[in-house]
């Protein structure tokens, strides 16, 4: 495996974790942190804050970009004592949840704890997957077959 593909694999794994953390509820993140205790003290590299991102679409779905409208977002950046930096960006207005997610992201960087972190967020990933699966199933039940009727006498 080349160096660049190793980096890509690591980034992909982290991206997956961050995706789960972005969609987790605040209480779920607190539960993960409780489960991962003891967590070393974290200092803020950037105080948790709330802001906006401009969401973009593409003309025709696949063409040049345009500005669709904004969304609220919360972000945080932390450094664990004797450990790694962690970052978080999440839609919505919960800087506290963003900070919790950043701490979990930092813990994930510790190779010794990575498996533990991934196991701790697994129930959240499972909930998200179940919700998606439910949506797919319910929607699939509304799949229609339209028939075209022949017009005229014959």
């Amino acid at each position: 495996m080349s160096v660049s593909s190793e980096i890509t694999a690591e980034a992909a794994a982290r991206r997956r974790v961050m995706g789960v953390l972005a969609e987790a509820r605040g209480a779920e993140l607190d539960a993960v942190l409780a489960q991962l205790a003891p967590v070393p003290p974290a200092t803020d590299l950037r105080a948790p804050e709330m802001g906006l991102v401009m969401l973009r679409g593409r003309v025709g779905g696949d063409g040049a970009p345009f500005n669709l409208g904004e969304a609220t977002v919360s972000r945080a950046a932390v450094r664990l004592e004797g450990g790694a930096n962690g970052f978080s960006y999440r839609l919505g207005r919960s800087p506290a949840a963003a900070r919790a997610a950043a701490v979990i992201d930092a813990l994930w960087h510790d190779a010794a704890r990575r498996a533990q972190v991934e196991a701790a967020i697994e129930p959240i990933a499972a909930r998200l997957a179940a919700e998606r699966s439910e949506a797919v199933h319910e929607t699939a039940a509304t799949k229609v077959e339209f028939f075209t009727l022949v017009r005229g006498e014959d």
């Binding site: 802001g51 906006l52 991102v53 401009m54 973009r56 679409g57 779905g61 998606r132």
Partner: peptide
């Protein structure tokens, strides 16, 4: 309300081709 918040940047364009389709 939106005028009270700073903007962090712009997202990548949404990819509607890989939407979780509900309709």
């Amino acid at each position: 309300f939106r005028t009270t918040l700073p903007r962090f940047g712009s997202t990548l364009p949404l990819d509607t081709g890989v939407m979780l389709v509900r309709r």
